[in-house]
């Protein structure tokens, strides 16, 4: 388990400020969503957390250790599932682990089975549907040695039905494992459905506008999506995004 602290992070690209003084924390075993319009610098924030670049100002701490510009500290899944097309599903899910040590294949098989991917271990990614590829990518993140998972709009390319199914699937798998998750999305309903907390970002440059704590009990099911409270939350967050 691990805890991420983002402290006053600012980043500009070629003179244009993309992130402005962003601060928030993700507690141990917490599911936090970053919600904001597309192009609000959310992916940049992930690239910074993952150590692709260093921030202009501010710091990132993971379990109290500074991780500015340090790679391999978190597990990251980009917008596309980013599976290696020449590797089978089984070989793909062990990739994150393989970078640090000899991967545990029996455990990977077990995890694939739990994730509803039994029988697809030896299939290549191009044989799978978009939703299944995302499942494989998430199983890979779970099997990676890092305890902190960053997901960058994983369901944005899926159709509405698959998206709902995948949200439910993600919740059920995550509730068994409880690694800390930072989830980026531009879908309000998705953020409410999945998260313990939602951090609303403004765009150009991105700043933290407001934080919402979502009180719904876990495990959550799909009935939640049609409840009255859901609508209330949606309204409130929508208004926040509008102003």
């Amino acid at each position: 388990m691990s805890e991420l602290v983002v402290e006053g992070v600012t980043k500009s690209f070629s003179g244009k400020k993309v992130l402005d003084n962003i601060s928030f924390t993700v507690q141990e075993g917490e599911f936090v969503s970053l919600l904001g319009p597309s192009g609000s610098g959310k992916s940049t924030l992930f690239h910074l957390i993952g150590g692709l670049f260093g921030p202009d100002a501010g710091n990132f701490y993971l379990d109290g250790n500074k991780i500015n510009g340090k790679r391999g500290a978190i597990s990251y899944t980009p917008q596309s599932p980013s599976l290696l097309p020449w590797r089978t599903v089984l070989d793909n899910v062990v990739l994150g682990a393989e970078i640090f040590a000899k991967p545990d294949r029996p455990q990977a098989r077990m995890m694939l089975e739990k994730a509803g991917l039994a029988g697809y271990e030896d299939a290549y990614p191009h044989h799978l549907s978009g939703g299944m590829r995302q499942r494989v990518a998430f199983v890979r993140a779970l099997l990676s040695p890092q305890d902190f998972i960053c997901l960058d709009e994983p369901f944005s390319a899926l159709d509405e039905f698959t998206r709902l199914e995948m949200q439910q699937w993600l919740l059920s798998i995550w509730e068994q494992n409880r690694k800390s998750v930072l989830f980026v999305t531009h879908n309000i309903e998705e953020a409410i459905h999945l998260s313990d907390r939602i951090i609303v970002l403004s765009s150009n440059p991105a700043t933290v506008k407001r934080e919402f704590t979502i009180p719904f009990e876990r495990p959550r099911d799909q009935a939640l999506l049609l409840s009255e409270e859901m609508l209330q939350w949606k309204k409130q967050i929508y208004q926040e995004l509008q102003t």
């Binding site: 993952g50 899944t77 917008q79």
Partner: peptide, 12 residues
């Protein structure tokens, strides 16, 4: 590029 980002951030 996305695969490259993934590999780099995974610590490869």
């Amino acid at each position: 590029q996305e695969l490259l980002h993934y590999m780099r951030m995974a610590g490869a």
